[in-house]
Write a protein that binds this DNA or RNA. Structure first.
Lengths: 221, 221
DNA sequence: CGCCGTCGTCAGGTAGTCGTCAGGTTGAGG
DNA sequence: CCTCAACCTGACGACTACCTGACGACGGCG
């Protein structure tokens, strides 16, 4: 039996899922939109699994995932999406997701995946509460009293890296996350954005830097 | 970078998957049927993820999974199946699977799922805190509180030796692992990299050293 | 229309990585 | 002791991934 945090705007799906999971012996905590999810799930350490809809009225589920991660939530995340599109899945994984399910889906399968996730748990150590905070609502990075606004692309890019603190995120994955529509961007464009983000991090005197690992990708240190 | 055990009877899929994973930076060990999978995967503690086809010539992938689990294999399992049938998925999860992918699938998505599993699966704590840890996520060697970044070639080389702790790995095998594209490298190049890696190990005060065994190869002690 | 911010690209420079070499050191065998 | 081969190691040139400042294109907005 697992405790599940569910964020979904469609009342019908919300009901079916929470009822279905209850029948499989799981407890569900519900949120209606991204803001609600942040308030209810960010600090709840008793949650075993999070289920997030990608298309929410007030935010993108991936941003919600990133925000939850940066506020210390370590439970594994499963994304729901109406689209079966590949790039959605890839950028979801890049945002730090652990699993993915396309609508329409069977509640029985969802329950199975939830159990698999709860069983496995999540390794990534809850990184020390680094004082770098990504605010998806305002597209800003905050460090202590300083803050800078990021452009949408900059935000997605930085989010992809911060979602795995300390780890090296491959260039390919960063591009998938920052350009979720699968647009072709020159390799150099990524470099450019890295420079812009670095300048902004410097501006707020962030102790964490966006380091590049030659031949592999980027890393937050 | 993860080490993946793949069991699949279709040669075409086998090739596409192992080649595709290689392009994403993963190493693949292949088995053709269930028996082969048991022999090769049951005791291999270096595997990060297992990919099993459900429909094998000599056995059901789910049975293979159960058998591997009962012989102590703890790596997360992803099932492949030709059918998108729901009951296949459910019984797969029941057999102890961690993920599932229906054919036809995108290799990019498979790679993403493999990475998600490998990330989660690395739960196994470093048995000895004084041990040397090769961390694929950060492309680094860690020893206690010290860590050094490795270049891609250094990482592959060291990984080849650490994957068989204590054993002597032949020079030919090390070269094959560190230069997977089959490039011709002078014998001296290997010596060179050994020196570079030694310096880095020394830098983090590792108790383990990269020793050379004259006329045979290298060994970690 | 003109202004402004974001976007993607480019060109030039920098520095890390790569593979090789040359000269020194070590070890085995006669 | 000498010889030879295997190995170590510091250095070097070539390559290229990456950095960075600048620019034109485009869309939103007054």
């Amino acid at each position: 039996m697992a405790k599940v945090g569910l964020c979904e705007d469609d009342p019908a799906i919300r009901r079916v899922v929470s009822e279905g999971l209850r029948l499989h012996g799981h407890e569900t905590v519900v949120a209606y939109d991204g803001g609600e999810a942040l308030r209810r799930f960010a600090d709840d350490t008793t949650l075993d699994v999070l289920i997030l809809d990608i298309g929410l009225p007030d935010a993108d589920g991936r941003d919600v995932c990133v925000a939850l991660r940066s506020s210390g939530q370590v439970a594994p995340v499963l994304f729901l999406t109406a689209l079966g599109e590949l790039h959605e899945r890839l950028s979801g994984f890049a945002a730090g997701a652990d699993d993915y399910l396309a609508k329409p889906f069977s509640v029985a399968e969802l329950a199975m995946r939830v159990e698999a996730l709860a069983r496995r748990g999540r390794v990534v150590a809850p990184s020390d509460p680094s004082d770098l905070i990504l605010d998806p609502a305002r597209h800003a990075v905050v460090c202590g009293d300083n803050e800078v606004l990021l452009t949408p692309t900059e935000f997605r890019l930085l989010a992809a890296v911060t979602s795995r603190p300390g780890e090296v995120v491959r260039r390919r994955a960063v591009i998938a996350a920052a350009w979720p529509d699968g647009a072709h961007v020159s390799d150099n464009t990524l470099d450019s954005y890295a420079t812009r983000i670095r300048r902004k991090l410097e501006q707020i005197e962030s102790p964490l830097q966006l380091r590049s690992v030659r031949g592999v990708g980027y890393q937050l240190r």
